[in-house]
Design a protein around this nucleic acid. Sequence first.
DNA 1: TTGACACTTCGGCGTAGGCCGAAGTGTTGG
DNA 2: CCAACACTTCGGCCTACGCCGAAGTGTCAA
Lengths: 232, 232
Amino acid sequence: MSTVNSLAATAALIGDPARAAMLLALLDGRAHSASDLAAIAGIAAPTASGHLVRLGAGGLVEMRAQGRHRFYRLAGRDVAAAIEELMSLSGARAAPASATAAWRRDPDLRFCRTCYDHLAGQVGMAVTDSLTRAGHIEPRGAKDWRLTSSGRLFCEKLGVDLEGAAARPGRHFARRCLDWSERRPHIAGALGAAIADTFFARGWTERLRRGRTVRLTDAGRRALARHFDAVA
Amino acid sequence: MSTVNSLAATAALIGDPARAAMLLALLDGRAHSASDLAAIAGIAAPTASGHLVRLGAGGLVEMRAQGRHRFYRLAGRDVAAAIEELMSLSGARAAPASATAAWRRDPDLRFCRTCYDHLAGQVGMAVTDSLTRAGHIEPRGAKDWRLTSSGRLFCEKLGVDLEGAAARPGRHFARRCLDWSERRPHIAGALGAAIADTFFARGWTERLRRGRTVRLTDAGRRALARHFDAVA
DNA sequence: TTGACACTTCGGCGTAGGCCGAAGTGTTGG
DNA sequence: CCAACACTTCGGCCTACGCCGAAGTGTCAA
């Protein structure tokens, strides 16, 4: 392909409103799921899927499959740089759209939410980080955590139902789950669910009426400080 | 217009092969007539005219009427920078396997060319590398070079018009500009332009009649060896 | 004034590509 | 095992836009 054509092809990839909306969302540097990006762009899932395939073929985004989700993120810093350069041209000086703006769009959701049945967002990450720091869990293999003996003690003291979690047949015990807003793995699987159950049971978190957003109560804030050595 | 739409609109302007060909031709920083650009893009005059109107409306090119001719040129350095940035994306990214094949595509252009008003390609990189090696310039911040005191001496000995360059109001003095074929920053800004002027004034480089390919003369080859400790 | 020329506007043709619903694939949980 | 779910592929509709020929506008030179 000639220089001209490859330039035009790359620019054309950015030149569609739906794809541009996706790329702008990805400018925050995090990985987003395909359905997320579809919602952001305001298009149906099949359309989004097609766009994402083309963006991948053009080398603008990378995909990582995790369970039944597929997470997409920008392929590199240079992609972000090129997009920002284009934005500065387009006069839409308005928003450096990056991290801070995207963050502000939905602060609560990013702060604390459930991912299926376990905690995600900053609170989920704080818990995971704390467990890792204290040596209560360790990465094992590509997709799992290992609960150490100290971790077992810690969970029991906290009131987490380890027996119940271990007894669930066919369910992974402690899974690494990529957190789309934090871009690092948090704790999922039966253990992640049991920990989340404990948070709800002890009144540390409350589900809001709609959606996946979760509110951290004052007691939860104190519990994070006391048990997890984390502030939120 | 929203951020998304203006980004998409600008990118779409570059994303058409005919317009991309015109923009690439205009990267030499010179003004080209409409019929010239039509020939370069390989399209009929009416089609080219339509494209040029749209490029003008998008703020990518400026028009100057002169007699019955109309000359078009890039609207600014930022336009050139954005296009170069996009090229660095599209070049090596889509086809990592065929890097050398891509090199063979336009060997002369990759060897030496102008990027708006400064030298680019291997020769531009050789100059930049030499200045860096000798401690004449250093990176400063994210996008600039700093000319050291030894660099100031070196430029004066070479006959580069430093006062003139420093006096250009509102123009960055020494800018880092991503070289799309070398994929590293070379020297741009007023200093880059002044150095390029010196190369042309001393007969080290010659502009070819069309396009931005630049020929390195035999004197230029010797000058590179003598002053820049570089072979080409 | 007339003709040559550079360029633009207009009108109509043809296709690339964006869009969605329906159906298919792979993973998770019960 | 099956149901739910996230995602993709497929097929067909439809608009946007690139393209050109013809005709219109402005400039130059005799």
